[in-house]
């Protein structure tokens, strides 16, 4: 029996190591490429550890006239992602409350439709939106990114917030209502503070989804007047300097990685909150 346990433990740690290597090695390779001089990257001597660490690739990429234009990209992506997340929360919070608590007719159909829209091919909506934006000369603006992003992310955010509201105890709301609290007061003063984990999770989801979006900015900013980080990084792939390309990729990754590591528990909560209903 004890021998069995040791064998089992060995098996667990061995598979954990394998999983770690598979999931992390690609990122490690990227980091390695970004901090080594071009001649080492291109040499055929395989080494999984850095032999010479330099940061010139990062310095090059961060220069204002670099092809990937990372400053501009980061600035725009931050603006767009923040605006999108805020808009999503403002729109989704009352909607989620309505779906979770109020006597809304056909609520399952509404929620089901909203969620299934998320899985439809994006390109179906992008073609006409492009035509509309061009005809009103709204393409290549921040607005042309924020509005579609918000719409694409909104169903998901509503679903997250709804599953969090479902978990709040109804008694608090009942008590507040008996005390003569209006629905608006209830939403702002009682539900909003209670819902903080859900709101953080929803905000991060919306932020990350906007940060990584590629197809929409690719099409809607076709005149290259504004750029996002994803687009800038893509432009750096036209260049043949592998080290700089890797450095640009790392810079693109940093904000979302920080969000992921710090708020990993909230993101896990979203999934867990959906399961045991």
């Amino acid at each position: 029996m004890k021998k069995n346990l040791i064998l089992k433990n060995f098996f667990i740690y061995f598979s954990a190591l394998i999983v770690f290597l598979i999931m992390f090695f690609p990122l490690y390779g990227l980091i390695l490429t970004s901090i080594q001089p071009e001649n080492i990257i291109r040499s055929r001597n395989l080494s999984f550890f850095p032999t010479e660490i330099i940061f010139t690739h990062f310095a090059e990429v961060l220069k204002p006239n670099h092809i990937s234009n990372i400053y501009e990209g980061i600035k725009n992506s931050l603006i767009v992602s923040f605006l999108t997340s805020f808009l999503c929360i403002i729109l989704a919070f009352p909607a989620a409350y309505s779906l979770a608590r109020l006597n809304l007719p056909a609520k399952n159909i509404i929620l089901g439709t909203l969620i299934s829209i998320y899985f439809l091919p994006t390109i179906l909506f992008v073609i006409p939106l492009f035509v509309i934006l061009v005809s009103y000369q709204l393409d290549d603006t921040i607005l042309s990114l924020v509005v579609p992003y918000t719409a694409f992310t909104l169903p998901f955010v509503i679903w997250i917030l709804k599953s969090f509201i479902d978990k709040l105890p109804v008694e608090v709301e009942e008590a507040a209502k008996i005390d003569g609290c209006s629905t608006l007061q209830l939403l702002i003063h009682i539900i909003f503070p209670l819902l903080r984990p859900g709101l953080i999770a929803a905000f991060i989801f919306a932020f990350i989804l906007s940060w990584v979006e590629f197809l929409t900015p690719l099409i809607f900013t076709n005149n290259l007047k504004i750029s996002t980080v994803a687009l800038g990084l893509f432009r750096s792939t036209i260049d043949i300097k592998i080290g700089q390309q890797a450095a640009a990729a790392i810079i693109t990754l940093i904000p979302v990685t920080i969000l992921m590591i710090f708020f990993q528990q909230y993101i896990t909560k979203v999934v867990l909150s959906g399961s045991d209903k």
Partner: peptide, 18 residues
């Protein structure tokens, strides 16, 4: 678990480059 969740936040452009 953090290491496994991480690739989700990797923009697909980055994963393409990678």
């Amino acid at each position: 678990r953090v290491m496994i969740v991480l690739p989700w936040a990797v923009p697909s452009v980055v994963s393409g480059v990678l």
